[in-house]
Amino acid sequence: MKDFLTDAVQTLVTFLQGLGQLGLFFVSLLVYSPRTLVRRPQLVMRQVYNSGAMSLTIILTCGLFVGMVLGLQGFDTLQRFGAEEALGTFAALSLVKELGPVLTALLFAGRAGTALASEIGLMRATDQLAAMEMMAVDPIRRVVIPRFLGGVISMPFLAAIFNMVAIFGAYLVGVSFMGVDEGSFWSQMYANVAVADINQGIIKSVVFGVVASLLAVFEGYNSVPTAEGVGRATTRTVVITAIVVLIMDYMLTAALIG
């Protein structure tokens, strides 16, 4: 029992230390980010390409099929109530407010987050970060912040693209395959999706962008400089991001719905 308590306390202390370390790391990113954005925009744009443009394939593919599944399931459920004309509203609200930001964040963590964590971890393992330090170049400003900002900027755009493709997927299934009236599909969506709903999605995608990018660069930067350490950091990035995104999704939804 005593051993169990000692272990529990030790685990709690380690967790709090990690949390504190993450907090300080985040503060340092916030402090230096504006300067990097203004003085070195080309570094940030390169990372927008790496994190954003390079994630387009997975976002487009997954978005299309998520939308098609929504179209099928939505039609199947709504027709029981004779409300299949509301399929457009159903798909748009589900995607814009919830599925778009959350699934984009999870896909981002799996594609760009792992790439960020392993890239920075390998830079540490191969002394590239130490070499920068020796050249009087701060790796936080030169390596970490551009990658962090690249992820933060990319995420809302990726979520918007995911939503558009997914709505098209729902349209394809609902209108083209299931025979839902095209006019009803679009007009009901236009009438029932408010700006506040879209804002909810935008806020979520920005917050998830910060969370996913922060966790990826933090795990990579603090990884143990071995092959095993980099692998572990990459895995932790995906697992922790998924957990934190889903927890924050509930909290944000509760706060935004009020």
């Binding site: 830079m123 191969t126 590239q128 130490a130 070499a131 020796m134 050249m135 009087a136 170049v137 030169r142």
Partner: peptide, 30 residues
């Protein structure tokens, strides 16, 4: 550190930059 140069065991070249840009790196930064 600007007055020092250090050669690491494995060279520690920046793997996303070519040879020219690696050598130019400290000049571009400072």
């Amino acid at each position: 550190r600007r007055k020092m140069g250090m050669l690491f065991q494995n060279g520690a070249l920046l793997t996303d930059l070519d040879v020219f840009e690696n050598v130019a790196f400290p000049l571009r930064e400072h």
